Amino acid sequence: MIFTVDVEDWSQSVLDRNNSVTERVLRSTHTVMDVLSENGTTATFFTLGNVAEKFPELIQRMVKEGHEVASHGYSHQNIYSMSPVQMQEDISKSVKILEDAGGEKVIGFRAPNFSIREHLFHPFCEALQASGIRYDSSLFPMKVLKYGIEKKYDLSVFQEYGIDEFYLSYIKLGKYKLPYFGGGYFRLSPYAMTNALIKPLPESAVFYMHPYEVDHEELSFVKEQYGKIPFKWRLTQFVGRKGIQDKLSRLIKDQDMMSFRDAYYPANVSRSDRANNLSSEVGSFSQLTA
């Protein structure tokens, strides 16, 4: 299974993009890397450019410990809110910052808030291709409150640009899809339930989380710095944080987790060989109905 981390600072990426990136993202990401290190596991860190810009030492540790550094855009601006030119500038800016900090080519991308939409596939793929991106993991193949696509869509455009698309994992309950494997869904659910629901997922399943989910003291900081926040945010964004570190350790011990790069893009695998390896998965993604 693929372990992915969306590296962003909560008060900047969620509360207000005009806020400064704080040191909380530095500490919480180190905590996640500590958990991974203790269990000999590598992950893909989809990292905001503004985080790497402020804390390049964080990127250097990722590289040193064998993790994959991938792009999450520069400032967590939604893809659908940008023009094609802005989209390309944002992605290329983030990629350059990450590559300068880590000294390695960035080949992966995930849109903030999974904010890609089907009518943007062509300019989005053009922007990815221009920055040398080889795969994307931005699709949430169901509609939820803040993101996702609920229509039938064709992913062949990604293949036209030579980009592999890996959508987020989900479980099926009857005719419904639930985006269960990561984020608040993982944080708010009992671990026993998560472990049971993982069993039918394929080995290519994608888990995701944010470093701030291990920061159980952040709510007090946010209240002190920015004042009262809505109850629904306190519920969905902060409940369950205290126990997440132990749950992550259990998940990593119970599952064979690795980065996208280690699973699909080892340095000695050619493009044609990789395409053959992925054909059974990516090929089946060309038409999806949410």
Rank of each mutant, 00 (worst) to 15 (best):
E8K: 04
G49E: 01
M257F: 06
R27W: 15
W10E: 00
N113M: 13
G174E: 03
S280W: 15
M209Q: 03
M62P: 02
N277I: 07
D9G: 08
I244L: 15
R271F: 05
S270I: 00
F55C: 06
N268M: 02
L26F: 07
V239C: 10
N268V: 04
G182M: 08
G73A: 05
D16G: 06
Y180R: 13
F238N: 00
R110Y: 00
L173I: 11
Q88N: 10
Y226K: 09
S37F: 14
N19G: 12
E23Y: 14
L188W: 08
T29I: 07
A275M: 12
S83F: 12
F109L: 01
V5A: 05
E57R: 08
L173K: 10
D100C: 09
F285K: 11
P202L: 07
Y226A: 03
W10Q: 00
R241F: 00
S272N: 12
M82L: 14
Q129S: 11
N195F: 14
M257W: 07
E8D: 01
S37Q: 13
P230D: 04
E126C: 14
F46A: 02
E57V: 14
P179D: 09
Q77M: 15
S92P: 09
R274F: 00
T236L: 11
R110E: 03
Q159D: 04
Y80H: 13
Y167P: 12
L178P: 15
L235C: 09
M209I: 06
K172R: 15
Y264N: 00
V144M: 11
E8A: 02
H216A: 06
N18C: 14
E217W: 06
N39C: 11
I97Y: 00
E53W: 09
L98D: 01
V106Q: 01
